[in-house]
Design a protein around this nucleic acid. Structure first.
Length: 151
DNA sequence: GCCAACGTTGGC
DNA sequence: GCCAACGTTGGC
């Protein structure tokens, strides 16, 4: 089974927000490569939640699980949304969202530089230069390495 | 705020 | 299809 890592800015939506909501639609992603990864997520797969753009607190913060496979992201059809996409129609949607349920918050943040130092992440997209994708695939081994570091 | 990386757009 | 301009991401 594959695993995943999703980035979120904690000021926008944090692991604590996910804990409160119990589950959420992982929406508003507007990058084709990330979109393709979202569409590849299968129910039951684990998702590492990662806080980006968070001064002094960049890194992995918890684990979620895919509870619903991707379906068209409603915001692309909403004219009032800044994520409205005029080229998307219900017949030919462009952007997709799975739903992710909270599983656990790590007892401590696993910082990016610590992940970068793990042998399992040597040359992984998260730690190589130009890591801008907000959804990334992980191997089971990488998932376990992050979980191990968190406890 | 700065800057590197890189995706997207649009003219040709 | 090429490529310059521009916008966004994300670490620091």
């Amino acid at each position: 089974m594959a695993a995943w890592l999703v980035k979120t800015e904690p000021e926008v939506y944090s692991i604590q927000d996910l804990k409160r909501d119990k589950r959420t639609r992982w929406d508003l992603v507007r990058n084709y490569q990330a979109r393709n990864f979202l569409r590849a997520m299968k129910v039951g797969e684990s998702v590492v939640v990662y806080h980006s753009n968070s001064p002094g607190a960049v890194g992995a913060v918890g684990i979620g699980v895919v509870v619903k496979e991707a379906y068209p992201d409603p915001s692309q059809f909403d004219r009032r949304s800044e994520y409205f996409d005029e080229k998307a129609t219900p017949e030919t949607p462009r952007w997709f969202s799975p739903e992710i349920a909270f599983q656990r918050a790590f007892p401590r943040l696993v910082p990016l530089d610590e992940i970068a130092s793990m042998k399992e992440f040597k040359s992984h997209q998260l730690v190589t230069r130009g890591n801008r994708l907000s959804v990334l695939p992980l191997t089971e081994v990488q998932l376990r390495a992050i979980e191990r570091a968190a406890d």
